[in-house]
């Protein structure tokens, strides 16, 4: 059984981060809250998103799995404004999720979860970490899109850089010093190259004032952690973790 009530904003954010990578996902429901772990179809990126019970106005649940059409779910939530309340209820009989927003009731059939993999999280030792607001790098990512399809992230002990190099000497370079960063801890220099599309999708799934905690290595996947369901009074009631595999120059 599952029945919960939550502010639209918090649910949209949770589903939106997942939707940046996959169209379908398995929602794990427990007495403590919701969790989605998913890997994109080409196994380049992975997400783990959690929303704890306290993010909800009311929450009653027994352990269960639910196959969600994330695209459809996102679509349903677009009708809700930020402060609307969304009610979710599992309809066991018809195997569907019933979403109530104001006077609107939307029932969504659930998907078969048997084909949805439980992604294995690689164990990584990433030497550099940097914390930066989404807004600080958003412009750089936007500008890069017309230049190339890949972006290099690098840290030194004094700065965090995003460099995108394209054809015919086109390039975008964003360099952030310690005063523009929340935190920087990079004893050794670290650089890895990533698909711009994936990286931008992940970053842009979060609001511009959200802080990204980025862990970086040399030619290693990047790990990005951020808070979800942030409330000025009570703090974060959830979190998201992204992993993105790098591109590596062969020659």
């Amino acid at each position: 059984m599952f029945k919960a009530r939550i502010k639209a904003d918090n649910l949209k954010e949770f589903i939106g981060t997942v939707g940046s990578l996959v169209d379908e996902a398995k929602l794990n429901i427990s007495e403590e809250g919701l969790q989605i772990k998913a890997v994109d179809p080409s196994h380049v990126a992975m997400i783990e998103a959690n929303l704890v019970k306290s993010a909800f106005d009311s929450y009653e649940a027994k352990s269960m799995e639910m196959g969600l059409d994330i695209d459809k779910f996102k679509n349903v939530l677009t009708v809700a404004s930020k402060d609307d309340m969304v009610e979710l209820e599992m309809d066991d009989k018809l195997n569907r999720l019933v979403v109530n927003i104001g006077n609107l009731t939307r029932a969504m059939p659930l998907l078969d979860t048997s084909g949805m993999p439980d992604p294995k999280v690689p164990s990584l030792d990433l030497p550099a970490s940097v914390s930066v607001a989404v807004g600080e790098i958003g412009q750089g990512l936007k500008a890069s899109k017309s230049v190339s399809d890949h972006i290099a992230l690098s840290t030194t002990k004094d700065s965090f850089r995003l460099v995108c190099e394209g054809d015919n000497q086109n390039s975008v370079d964003v360099s952030l010093g310690k005063d523009q960063l929340e935190k920087l801890d990079s004893a050794e220099d670290a650089t890895s190259l990533f698909s711009l599309e994936y990286f931008a999708l992940m970053v842009n799934s979060l609001p511009s004032d959200r802080i990204l905690h980025i862990n970086l290595g040399n030619d290693l996947p990047v790990k990005i952690d951020a808070d979800l369901a942030v409330d000025d009074m009570t703090g974060a009631q959830g979190n998201v973790k992204f992993l993105l595999a790098p591109r590596i120059d062969r020659d």
Binding site: V44, H150, P221, I248, R250
Partner: peptide, 15 residues
């Protein structure tokens, strides 16, 4: 001529 090596995309399974 412009096709620069852009690196090979690895998957998470490679790590």
């Amino acid at each position: 001529v412009d096709a620069k090596p852009r690196g090979r995309q690895f998957t998470l399974g490679d790590f």
